[in-house]
Amino acid sequence: MESLYDPKGNQNIIDRIDSLTPIKLSLWGKMTVSQMLEHCQQPIKVCFGTLHIQPHWKSYFLKNSYKKVLHSKQPFRRDLSTIKEYNITHEPHFETAKQQLKELVATFAKEGHGCIKQHRHPLMGNLTHHEWDLLQWKHLDHHLKQFGV
């Protein structure tokens, strides 16, 4: 598994983001490519401490199950649900959303572990720096594959 802290792994994700176009269609799901780009920013903003979401009630019962999925070598399933704060219902401007996501991703390689300001995930409870990295990489990989890149 690649790492967003590693400059090479980070650049690989950014290159995949760069290959997206505004007319790229998803292979599954309902999001447009612009909505996906903004959706992928939300969990990064949580770990950077710029988006504050209260712990979800499911976290008290299911955090160990969620962490098991996180640590699995398997990619995320296509039918995983998301928390409502990550749902993007408007149509973001493609280039703006793309640039903002690339900047957020680049921060991992630039700042390393120092970019993580929030250790509590709304569904998984407290995460280590490694777990935040793993979660972000798997989440980005999942959605980039959703759009064929």
Rank of each mutant, 00 (worst) to 15 (best):
Q35V: 03
N87M: 11
W28P: 12
V105F: 00
T89I: 05
K145Y: 11
N10G: 01
P22D: 15
E103L: 12
K8I: 15
Q118L: 05
T107N: 13
S81C: 02
H93I: 05
Y60Q: 10
D18C: 12
G148L: 05
K102A: 03
Q54K: 09
C47H: 03
G114K: 15
N10A: 00
L37V: 00
P7A: 03
D133I: 00
R78L: 07
S65F: 11
W57P: 00
T96F: 13
Q146E: 07
K8F: 10
L4Y: 01
A97L: 01
K67R: 15
E38T: 03
T82H: 02
K58N: 10
H121Q: 11
L144K: 10
Q54F: 08
E91Y: 04
I14Q: 08
E91T: 09
Q146G: 02
K84Q: 13
S19Q: 13
N12S: 12
K63M: 09
W132S: 12
T128K: 01
K45A: 13
D79C: 06
T21H: 15
Q99H: 12
N10H: 03
M31H: 11
H113R: 13
N64M: 10
K67I: 07
L135C: 12
K145Q: 14
S65A: 13
S72F: 10
F76C: 06
L20T: 03
L127Y: 06
L127E: 02
K145P: 05
R78A: 08
P43G: 09
S26E: 14
H121P: 06
E131P: 01
P7T: 02
H90G: 06
L135F: 15
H39K: 00
H143P: 09
I17M: 00
I17E: 06
P7S: 05
E38Y: 06
T21K: 15
D133V: 00
L70R: 02
C115T: 02
P75M: 07
W137T: 15
F76H: 11
V46K: 07
T89G: 04
R120C: 13
H71F: 11
S34D: 02
L134W: 07
G114A: 14
I83T: 11
M31I: 08
N126R: 14
H119S: 15
Q42M: 13
A109R: 07
Y5K: 01
K68V: 06
V46Y: 06
K63Q: 12
E111C: 08
F76D: 12
G114F: 12
E38R: 02
I23C: 12
H52D: 04
K73G: 15
G112H: 01
L4M: 02
K145L: 13
D133N: 06
K24Y: 06
W137C: 10
T107A: 04
T82S: 14
L70G: 12
L62H: 07
M31Q: 09
V69S: 14
E111K: 07
Y86M: 11
E38D: 12
P43V: 09
C47F: 04
G29K: 06
L70T: 10
K138D: 04
Q146M: 02
P122Y: 01
R77D: 07
Y60W: 13
H129D: 15
T89E: 09
I44S: 06
M36T: 05
V105N: 05
T96Y: 13
L140G: 00
H90N: 11
G125L: 03
V105D: 03
L27N: 15
H39D: 09
P55H: 07
G125V: 04
K117C: 10
H56D: 14
S65K: 14
G125N: 02
H39E: 05
F108H: 01
